[in-house]
């Protein structure tokens, strides 16, 4: 790569990662719960990876490697936020101007067209956003992205027992929230 000129370097970097962008954004969106933070997380990832282009070239299976870096970045960002004065008060999405659901194509305003599936999705999105970061992350990666716990143990460098505990507690919390609002 060092023989490339700057334009070629950029092109090569983009060629490697552009096919992963939609997927990275989807995970980031599930991690963070809103569009702006998801975009920032993907952006931060690209900034972090740009100086590591040579390393990227040598990675045989890019996605697991990217998941690991993305997850660590997500935790780092969350920790930074935690250090700010009283990390309080984040409005729940249904009242938030950055309602993640605004990103989805609008449905027909006719209530009859507002399908049960969409309502269910909205409520699940809202409930997911009420989980703590660890629970949200494990549910995203395991239940939604299909990574096995044994894979995640290696990828995230978190003991299997801890992952299972987070997953079970996260689901239990989700069910409680959804049962409470009558969704389930």
């Amino acid at each position: 790569m060092k023989d490339f000129n700057q334009d070629q370097v950029e092109t090569h970097f983009e060629k490697l990662l552009r096919p992963q962008l939609t997927w990275l954004y989807r995970i980031s969106y599930r991690f963070t719960g809103n569009k702006a933070d998801a975009e920032d997380l993907v952006q931060d990832l690209l900034v972090k990876l740009y100086p590591r282009r040579d390393e990227l070239d040598s990675v045989a299976n890019l996605r697991p490697w990217l998941v690991r870096v993305l997850y660590r970045l997500f935790l780092d960002n969350e920790r930074r936020q935690k250090r700010s004065p009283l990390r309080l008060l984040k409005r729940r999405p249904k009242d938030d101007a950055e309602d993640p659901l605004e990103q989805f194509p609008a449905s027909d305003p006719d209530p009859e067209q507002y399908t049960g599936g969409r309502i269910l999705s909205e409520r699940i999105e809202q409930a997911l956003n009420m989980l703590c970061r660890d629970h949200r992350a494990i549910i995203t990666l395991h239940d939604m992205e299909g990574y096995r716990l044994s894979e995640l143990e290696t990828l995230l460098e978190v003991p299997l027992g801890t992952l299972k505990s987070r997953l079970h507690r996260g689901r239990a919390t989700l069910r409680k929230i959804l049962e409470k609002d009558g969704t389930f």
Binding site: L17, Y25, V47
Partner: peptide
Amino acid sequence: LPEPILDPDFAARAFKHAA
């Protein structure tokens, strides 16, 4: 759950910014 939609111009912005 429906797939969140990535802004069409995000990729161009993001790669440019990373560089």
